[in-house]
C-alpha cells in the first residue's frame, strides 16, 4: 500500500465531535454492509425452508431442512452434476486459453521488437471498444455454420482471447528488466525458452490475478451460453438457473437452493483468496 497510515497529521482523536462522527461513520458503513449481505442470508434461509414465507426466512428460519437440495438432486430434468462439470470445463478452458494466448501476445508486445508492434498493440486495444452485442449475432451464425452449437468448443472458442488480458500482461512483462532475457539469450536460449523459462515464472502474480478474473467472468457469463447452448445437457449454471426459474417459478425454496449452488463455489473461493480477487478488480480499473 502506498500510504501506510490513514491518519492525517493533527487528526484529533478525542472529544465529542470525534466520537459522534465515528458513530455516524460506523452506522453508515454497517447499514450499507447489511444491505449488501442480507440478501445472501435470505437466500440461505429460504433454501433451507420447506415452505418459505417472508416472515419465516427474514431472520432465523423456523425449521431447517435440506429438502430443496434433495428435490433438485432428484428431478430428472435438473442435471446438477452435469451443469457443474460444464461450467468448470467452460470457465477452466476459457481461462487456460486466455492465459496462454494473452501471455504469448503480451510478452511479444513487451519484449520482442518486431515490425508493426505498436500498431498491433493499438489495434488489440481498440477492439475493447466493440460492444459484445454487435458480434453476438454473426458469431452465432458462424458457429451454426460450423455445427458448433451445443458443443464445448462453441462455448469456449469465442471467449478464448481478450484484449484486457493482453494489456495487463504486456504491462507486467514491460516492468520486468530486459537484461534477464539478454542474459538468457547469451546462454543460448531461444525466444520461446526465454519466455517460458525466464519471464513466465516471474509473471505468476499477474497470471494468477488475470486467471481468477477470467474464471470468475466465465463462471458468471450468462449471455453467450444462453445463446449457444440450447439443450439441457450443455447448459452452464447461470443458464441452467434461468431454465429452472422458468420451470419452477415461485417455488422459491427450490430456486434459492439452485441460486446458492451457483453462488457458493465463487463465494467460498472469494473468501479464501480475497486479496487476489480485489487485486484483479483494481487492476482492471487501471485500464483508464
Amino acid at each position: 500500500m502506498a500510504r501506510s497510515s490513514y491518519e492525517y497529521p493533527g487528526y484529533d482523536r478525542s472529544g465529542a465531535s470525534y466520537w459522534s462522527k465515528t458513530v455516524v461513520l460506523y452506522a453508515l458503513v454497517t447499514t450499507g454492509a447489511l444491505w449488501m449481505t442480507l440478501p445472501f442470508w435470505w437466500t440461505l434461509t429460504t433454501a433451507l425452508s420447506a415452505n418459505p414465507t417472508a416472515t419465516s426466512v427474514t431472520f432465523i428460519p423456523a425449521e431447517v431442512t435440506a429438502q430443496n437440495f434433495l428435490k433438485l438432486w432428484e428431478r430428472p430434468d435438473i442435471l446438477l452434476v452435469r451443469w457443474f462439470i460444464n461450467t468448470v470445463i467452460f470457465a477452466g478452458a476459457v481461462t487456460a486459453f486466455n492465459l496462454t494466448f494473452d501471455s504469448l501476445a503480451g510478452y511479444a508486445l513487451a519484449k520482442i521488437d518486431f515490425w508493426g508492434r505498436e500498431k498491433l498493440f493499438l489495434g488489440f486495444m481498440s477492439t475493447m471498444m466493440i460492444p459484445g452485442m454487435v458480434t453476438l449475432i454473426p458469431v452465432y451464425l458462424i458457429l451454426v455454420e460450423l455445427n458448433w452449437t451445443n458443443t464445448y468448443q462453441g462455448l469456449i472458442a469465442p471467449l478464448a482471447a481478450n484484449p484486457f488480458g493482453i494489456f495487463l500482461l504486456r504491462q507486467h512483462f514491460k516492468s520486468l528488466p530486459s537484461a534477464l532475457g539478454e542474459a538468457s539469450k547469451i546462454d543460448g536460449c531461444n525466444e520461446l525458452q526465454t519466455f517460458y523459462k525466464i519471464y513466465l515464472p516471474l509473471a505468476k502474480p499477474a497470471l494468477a490475478t488475470l486467471g481468477i478474473f477470467t474464471f470468475m467472468g466465465a463462471w458468471n457469463n450468462f449471455q453467450w451460453p444462453l445463446i449457444i447452448a440450447n439443450e439441457n445437457e450443455m447448459y452452464t449454471l447461470p443458464v441452467a438457473l434461468f431454465a429452472v426459474r422458468n420451470q419452477y417459478f415461485a417455488e422459491w425454496g427450490l430456486m434459492m437452493a439452485a441460486a446458492l449452488i451457483i453462488v457458493g463455489p465463487v463465494l467460498i473461493a472469494f473468501l479464501a483468496a480475497q486479496n487476489y480477487f480485489i487485486r484483479g478488480m483494481s487492476l482492471s480499473g487501471m485500464k483508464g
Binding site: D77, V144, N147, T149, N230, N232, E233
Partner: peptide
C-alpha cells in the same frame, strides 16, 4: 429427446442442414 429450448435448437439444425 431435447430438454427445453427445443424450438431454437430445431431451427438451427434445420438451417444447418442436420
Amino acid at each position: 429427446p431435447v430438454q427445453s429450448n427445443y424450438k431454437q435448437k430445431l431451427k438451427t439444425q434445420l438451417g444447418a442442414g442436420n
